[in-house]
């Protein structure tokens, strides 16, 4: 009898857990279907290649796409070498001491610093102290610091996956430490490092808070001419279109279109990273 009750209890329990997962999946499906259904009809070539017109009630989002692209490139240029360098230090050179511990604690805590706080930091350091003004450069610097913890962690994972025998084999042949790393570790680790880095960059591309005061512009009639110009960005544009526009209901389709392009961009980057990872694994096996 108790056996049967336990059976029933188990069935109920399992269905509760299954429901939890179902709720999560349901949320995801709702978010995506809502954006896609409403955004799909808005997107056409003009939407992608034209600037906003008529007080941002018509036209496209091209300047925002270009702006997000530029700021992401700056972020990549800064955070990839810095993140990889730090990972190389930690995985190849660092001894187990207080200093190394301090670095690791810093990385974990940097990962937990709110994005708006990075924004504040960027305002003081890059915009004001370093005289970049509100610009693509200042926003890129700010975002690169924000992505640094992710880049480092991902790069270190990639380095860890390279067998010790690659290093030992090289050293035993008379390579110096740096020769061994350069010729027999990095060539195999870099694709993996890039995979993780792209994921970090996709997050940077979708971030709004750090660029609010460091360079994103409400509306610009032309494309930025230099890296010291302000820029329009997809996530900021979505924020504006969703909350700050004078005719919010009128521009709702544009907001949906922007959201869809933003999501598509983030996913294209994620997909790129996943394909890279897949190719990498296949190559390893060969």
């Amino acid at each position: 009898m108790t056996n049967r009750i336990n059976r029933i209890k188990e069935k109920i329990g399992f269905s509760i857990l299954a429901t939890c997962l179902a709720v999560v999946v349901f949320i995801i499906v709702v978010i995506f279907s809502n954006i896609i259904i409403n955004g799909y009809s808005v997107i056409n070539l003009d939407f992608l290649i034209k600037a906003p017109t008529d007080g941002m009630t018509k036209g496209g989002i091209m300047p925002a796409i270009v702006g997000t692209f530029l700021v992401t490139v700056i972020t990549a240029i800064l955070s990839i070498p810095l993140g990889m360098g730090c990972a190389i230090y930690l995985n190849e050179y660092a001894k187990q001491n207080l200093f190394t511990k301090l670095i690791r604690i810093s990385i974990r805590n940097l990962a937990g610093v709110p994005s708006i706080v990075y924004g504040l930091f960027g305002v003081v350091l890059f915009v004001q102290l370093m005289n970049m003004g509100t610009s693509i450069l200042a926003a890129g610097f700010t975002l690169s610091l924000m992505t640094l913890p992710m880049t480092i962690t991902a790069s270190e994972e990639a380095l860890k996956s390279i067998p010790v025998s690659f290093r030992e084999g090289s050293l035993a042949l008379g390579a110096t430490k740096w020769q061994a790393i350069k010729t027999n570790v990095l060539p195999y680790a870099i694709p993996g490092m890039l995979t993780g880095t792209i994921l970090g960059l996709s997050r940077a591309a979708g971030e709004t808070a750090p660029i609010l005061f460091t360079g994103a512009a409400f509306y610009l009639p032309h494309l930025p001419k230099s890296l010291l110009d302000q820029f329009m960005a997809l996530p900021y544009h979505l924020y504006i279109m969703a909350t700050q526009h004078h005719a919010i209901s009128e521009v709702r389709p544009i907001a949906y279109g922007t959201a869809m392009v933003l999501i598509a961009l983030v996913f294209a980057m994620n997909l790129g990273a996943i394909i890279l990872r897949y190719k990498l694994r296949k190559n390893r096996k060969e």
Binding site: S165, E168, G169, S170, L171, L173, G174
Partner: peptide, 15 residues
């Protein structure tokens, strides 16, 4: 290490 070469337990050819 150039003078004293080494062969490891598990063969470790590089990829």
């Amino acid at each position: 290490r150039r003078k004293v070469g080494m062969v490891f337990q598990k063969s470790n050819p590089f990829p």
